[in-house]
Design a protein around this nucleic acid. Structure first.
Lengths: 179, 179
DNA sequence: ATTAATTTTCAATATATTTTGAAAGTTCAG
DNA sequence: CTGAACTTTCAAAATATATTGAAAATTAAT
């Protein structure tokens, strides 16, 4: 006898779906060197049709004022969120960039600058180590540094090409780049 | 008057260069959701021409036996390091995959499996939220989930294409994929 | 079966990171 | 200029993550 279980896709209501998204986005963030709360705030802003205030963020995510403030500033420094001043209103509102391709390229740009560039700089330094290339240790070191650098340069160029692919994104033809 | 400073490139000796590489590789690792020590062990193994033992790793990095053991196992689970049994020798040796392109594709594969796949699964669940699409909140949520999913699928395909680009790596022609 | 060499485990400890919240700072309407 | 509304800062506390090291488990030679 064979039993087949068909997994039940439960249709969630909006509030539950929001919670799920925010919490999971936060969890994913931690795998990417991004602090959980920062990712959650970003998630909340992404699904908010209108700009919201610090107090709303505090309430929705049950976190302190200071925490919201610091993470919002960090998001702003990544150009993922902007501060909105409503004329005649005392408090500040915040809004996230909603074009997800812009979000992605922005993150790529920042991480390239903060991580890839310094790494390539270091590798260039280490490349010309002072030593005898007949020596097994030196040889392995020099070769490894060279191949990591080559990889890094390739990644750099691939990422640049991706950043410049904006039009292809709209048309959905980005994959033609890989043919 | 114009002063031009030409930065002095100091030629490091091998031991210093090794230290630099290991320590920086560890620091970079932390930006990538990889634990510092795991990245350092990996770095040490990458520049070691021959397989080395747990004790050598302990000594070189000044870390405890348990720490080496746990992180080595993690590296093995990522298929970046293998355990080597030398016949007639009691202790185990360890060696890292030296082909840096294999290392990169291996990491891409693992992270795709551990992070991208679950994310896409979640997004598919959230996509069909139960609600009125005329409602502004619902509309924004549904649209955002859809566009993130589209981005995720694009990334998935781009990464697959990259993984399959092995031959292009050798010839250095990988960038032609982007033309 | 015994034992010595080696690996693995994991509770306790140490370290690093995140969060809080109250105080200090800023802004601006009146 | 004053004070209420709001934002920012940051030391202290809470939480999360990494590390240690000694005991337990495993292995293989005798």
């Amino acid at each position: 006898m064979t039993l087949i279980f068909i997994s039940q896709i439960k249709k969630m209501k909006l509030p539950e779906a929001k919670k799920q998204f925010i919490s999971s986005w936060g969890a994913f963030g931690t795998h990417w060197g991004i602090n959980r709360t920062m990712a959650q705030i970003h998630a909340l802003l992404l699904i908010s049709p209108d700009p919201i205030t610090q107090d709303e963020i505090m309430e929705q995510l049950s976190i302190s004022r200071g925490n919201v403030n610091m993470n919002i500033r960090e998001l702003i420094s990544w150009s993922l969120v902007e501060r909105i001043i409503v004329t005649g209103e005392r408090r500040e509102y915040f809004s996230a960039e909603k074009d997800i391709w812009k979000v992605a390229t922005q993150i790529i740009k920042e991480r390239k600058k903060r991580e890839l560039d310094p790494m390539l700089k270091l590798l260039s330094q280490l490349e010309n180590v002072d030593g005898d290339k007949k020596d097994k240790e030196t040889k392995q070191f020099v070769e490894m540094i060279a191949s990591i650098k080559k990889l890094g340069l390739t990644a750099d160029k691939m990422l640049d090409a991706t950043i410049k692919a904006e039009e292809n994104w709209f048309t959905g033809s980005i994959l033609k780049m890989f043919k």
